[in-house]
């Protein structure tokens, strides 16, 4: 049984945000209005956090792309009163919209603030409805959503591999952000397969995870050289 995980190389990331747009396109994430944006209610399953260090003019900045961390010990799951969010056997932290009652306990308990509440009914001008991905449902107002590691792409990849009578191989299943990243800064694969690239990178000296001390055991690893002043 694979344990899906992601490794993001901050030394390669240029903050271009192709991952952000690819995610919005793949997952039918509604765009905000200026008012919604002012209230900080933009939904962006993948978002890039700029972290600047140093004093003028010796500044350094790194960009941290942040999808759902798919924690092995997910704080959001513990507080869901209806079982709408759970961790599946492959380590994906799932969000089942039809179960969700919109209580937002999970959004509050996520230390990474990566769960998003639908404050509004999603709407697109009718022309733009054409570009919606038919594989992914549109969440209504009042539902919590988050990055799924594009697990519908897993379903499709698995199906394709089976149709071709072979096992799922590395690279068959990658989320949309991984697929597009111009610098190939995002890696994806099975952390439990010791030979997979992600497992190797996650074991490497540059690897760290966000807020590791909380014991959430996130499955998104970051790579960076040295301390901030590298």
């Amino acid at each position: 049984m694979p344990r899906w995980g992601m490794v993001i190389d901050l030394d390669k990331c240029t903050g271009c945000q192709a991952c952000v747009i690819a995610c919005k396109a793949e997952n039918n994430i509604p765009f905000s209005s200026p008012k919604e944006a002012r209230l900080k209610r933009i939904i962006s399953w993948m978002s890039v956090l700029p972290v600047m260090e140093g004093e003028y003019p010796d500044l350094r900045e790194r960009f941290i792309p942040r999808p759902c961390m798919h924690c092995d010990n997910p704080p959001c799951v513990k507080v869901c009163p209806v079982g709408a969010t759970y961790k599946n056997r492959e380590g994906l932290v799932a969000q089942v919209y039809t179960q969700c009652i919109g209580c937002r306990y999970c959004t509050n308990n996520c230390p990474y603030t990566l769960k998003y509440f639908n404050w509004y009914t999603p709407e697109w001008p009718k022309e733009m409805e054409n570009y919606l991905n038919p594989d992914v449902p549109i969440r209504s107002k009042g539902v919590v959503e988050k990055c799924t590691f594009c697990h519908h792409r897993l379903q499709k990849a698995r199906e394709k591999a089976r149709a071709e009578n072979r096992r799922l191989k590395e690279g068959d299943y990658v989320p949309a952000c991984v697929q597009t990243c111009p610098t190939e800064a995002i890696y994806f694969g099975d952390l439990d397969d010791p030979h997979s690239l992600v497992a190797k990178l996650a074991r490497g000296p540059r690897a760290f995870r966000l807020l590791e001390e909380l014991g959430t055991e996130p499955k998104v690893y970051y790579l960076t050289e040295g301390e901030w002043h590298g």
């Binding site: 969700c100 549109i138 209504s140």
Partner: peptide, 9 residues
């Protein structure tokens, strides 16, 4: 949100 809302469009 009403608990009886439809969660999917």
């Amino acid at each position: 949100p009403s608990p009886y809302h439809s969660s999917i469009r």
